[in-house]
Structures are given as structure tokens and as C-alpha cells.
Write a protein that binds this DNA or RNA. Structure first.
Lengths: 194, 194
DNA sequence: ACAATTAATAGACCGCAGTCTAATAATGAA
DNA sequence: TTCATTATTAGACTGCGGTCTATTAATTGT
């Protein structure tokens, strides 16, 4: 048991090839847009076509991995053990999400686009991007309910869908996702007496 | 002045070719999905490739025209001169929108998808689909505000973005768009005292 | 009749993502 | 050492949307 993971038979994968592919793919897409060709990516990474397709089944899956690994996509999960109004917590969270998204908004739009004609990719995107963020917002909203900040009879999952939906709607229509919009969204979601 | 519109010089366009293209394109896409090839569409329509591209610049634009002309995409605009709560009016409207969308949900998802890599198509989709529906909802919400059904300090455009956003969010995630969801959406949008 | 103009046709062509093939390279096991 | 196994490589190949070319057809104006 000297190797980190159980060593399979045969020639091992070249980890540097994986790193180079992710790095060069993300760099080229940021520089030239998603239209950059696979040929250009493998040339920049110095590997063959098959080496890419041994690791990822589509360009979109390569870029999704690249973005999650090389861009700091992960936003800090709100700490609900701390005191203070949950409305402020959610505003801060959504502002951070928008902030991170703004840097690679084009790529995120392309991911949602690709998911529409590739069910496998839709599932991956859902598991890695959509559901985690949805669960975080639902948790904050439930806590807000417990604290009496929003009415008991409302459905946190529905509110989360409206917040994330408005986020996607503006993203896909190429409209700005700024701090004011995040605040307005949360304000409206928390509006009214508990 | 015997012709309906001013007759340009040269050979006139064959209107039947346009009709056949829209009809066969929509039929084939409904039967086989958007992946159906241009070659199959022009063969079914009995025209040449160039005849299609003389009329539409992409497959998506052909299908958008086809859907708007051949599927009854237009939902009745709510009559705000009638009495009665605007909440019910909006619920009915959103249910009708969902009902129409359900028949060609795959195609609508593809339109949003294509709009992400084709700015010209995004503009067309926005003008013909997004903005008209947005304006209708904003009008109903403004009327609801005037009638005291929702608070004066809320922003109808934001509420519409949350409603349509949640609609798109569920559409793009391939989750059901049913009557219950329409009602829940409108109920939450109208919640709280005016 | 004839010229000018625009449409329609068949089919070649381009660049693309993704697949496939055949040869070679690197590893563990026997 | 040899074998089995998996990775890598170069490059051919497929099917696609969309473009381009050359030829022919239909219309208006003179």
C-alpha cells in the first residue's frame, strides 16, 4: 500500500496531462470564448485528442472540472450558529455568488446551454452547481423561519427557486448581476410580517 | 397595384416553400427532437438548402418562426377592465403559459440554449417571447398595486423577474411546470398585507 | 424581344465535436 | 523476461450546421 489509491493494472494516467488540459482549456476559453476548438486546446496542452476524451466525454465536462478546480467557485457557506438577521446573511451570500459568477458568466451560461441538449451533463451540473447552492439558500430560509423573520406558512424551496430563478433569468438574458439586484431580491423575499 | 405588397424586381419568393419548411421543420423536431438534420428538413420540405438560408439564418430562427406561426403560442392577454382579484387573473395567466409551454418544452429549452451562443437570436427571442410576457405580468402586478392587492413599495419588474425566473429555472432543470406550481408562485408573489 | 434582377437548385466545401484505428509506451504480475 | 493491461499518440473518419459557386428559372421594366 505505497500508492495513494489502489493502483490499477497497466500504464497509469499522466496527471500532468489532466492538469495541462484543465489549465489550458480554461485559459483559452477565457481569452477566446467557448468557441475555441478542441484542436487548439489539446495543442496548447501538448497532448493528443484521445487523452482528452479518455478523461472527459465532452468539452463542457472538461471546462466544468476546470472551472471548479481552478476558479474559486465555492462561496463560503453561511454560518447559522452566529447571531444576526438571516436577511443580511442571505444578502451577503447572494452578493458573493453573483461576484464569483461575474468573472465567468459566459462560461456558466454555456454550461446551462449545454445541459439542454446533454442530459448527462445536466445531471452533473445539477449535482455540482445547482443543488448545493439551492440547499444552502433553503437552509438559510428555514433558519429565518425558525427565527420568525419570514412567515411559517411559506415554502423555502419555492422562495429559493424564485431567487435562483431570477438569478438565472438575468444571467441568460445577459443583464447585470450586481449587488443592488442581490439586495432587492432578498428584500422582496423577506418582505412582509412573519 | 394588383399585388398585396410592393413587388420587388426579380423572381418572387415561393411562399409555399416557406410554409413547407416551417411545417416540416416543426413536425420533424417534434417527432425526432432538435437533433434532426437540416438535410432531413429540406428533403421533407422538398426545397434546396439555399432556399432555407435565404429565409432564415439559423435552424433556431426557422423553428422559432415555425413555433410562433403553427403552434398557438399566444396566450390571451388578461383583461384588466374586468373586476375581480388580480391574483386570480395572474394565476390563470401563468397556468395558461405553462400549459402552452408544456407542449413544446423541449423546443423552448433549445431556444434559450441557442440564445447563449448567438446574440442575434437572443435579441429575437427577447423581443418575441421574453419581453411581451414580462410586460403582461408587470401590467397585472401594477394593476394589483393600484387596487391595493400588493404593497405600493414593491417593484413589479422584480416580481415578474422572480416569477419568470422560477419558470425558466424549472424548465431548464427539466422539472414539471404544472398548475400547482403556477398557483404557488403567484400566491407567494401576492403574500402579505398590502 | 431583351436586359436586369432576384430566387431556386444541386452539390461542393469548411470547420467543428466527437469517434475510431493502429501503433507504441508504461506499468504490475507471473 | 515475458505477458496482460491500460494510456498515449497521430491521424483518419463521421455527421453536423452553415457557406459558397455555378447554373437555371421567374419576374419587371424598357
Amino acid at each position: 500500500m505505497t500508492q495513494e489509491t489502489t493502483q490499477a493494472a497497466g500504464r497509469p494516467r499522466n496527471a500532468e496531462a489532466s492538469d495541462a488540459l484543465k489549465r489550458e482549456a480554461l485559459r483559452l476559453v477565457r481569452e477566446q470564448g467557448y468557441g475555441v476548438s478542441i484542436a487548439a486546446i489539446i495543442k496548447a496542452a501538448g497532448v493528443s485528442r484521445q487523452t482528452l476524451y479518455n478523461r472527459w466525454s465532452t468539452k463542457a465536462e472538461l471546462l466544468l472540472d476546470a472551472l471548479f478546480e481552478l476558479a474559486d467557485m465555492q462561496v463560503a457557506i453561511p454560518d447559522l450558529s452566529q447571531p444576526g438577521p438571516r436577511r443580511a446573511v442571505l444578502t451577503t451570500y447572494m452578493r458573493e455568488v453573483f461576484h464569483h459568477v461575474r468573472k465567468d458568466a459566459d462560461l456558466l451560461r454555456i454550461f446551462i446551454s449545454q445541459a439542454q441538449s446533454d442530459p448527462a451533463f445536466r445531471a452533473v451540473l445539477y449535482d455540482r452547481f445547482v443543488e448545493p447552492r439551492d440547499l444552502i439558500v433553503v437552509d438559510v430560509l428555514r433558519d429565518a423561519q425558525a427565527r420568525g423573520e419570514i412567515a411559517q406558512d411559506r415554502d423555502p424551496a419555492l422562495i429559493s427557486a424564485m431567487i435562483h430563478g431570477a438569478f438565472w433569468y438575468r444571467l441568460l438574458l445577459d443583464l447585470p448581476l450586481d449587488d443592488d439586484f442581490a439586495a432587492a431580491l432578498v428584500e422582496d423575499a423577506f418582505r412582509g410580517a412573519a
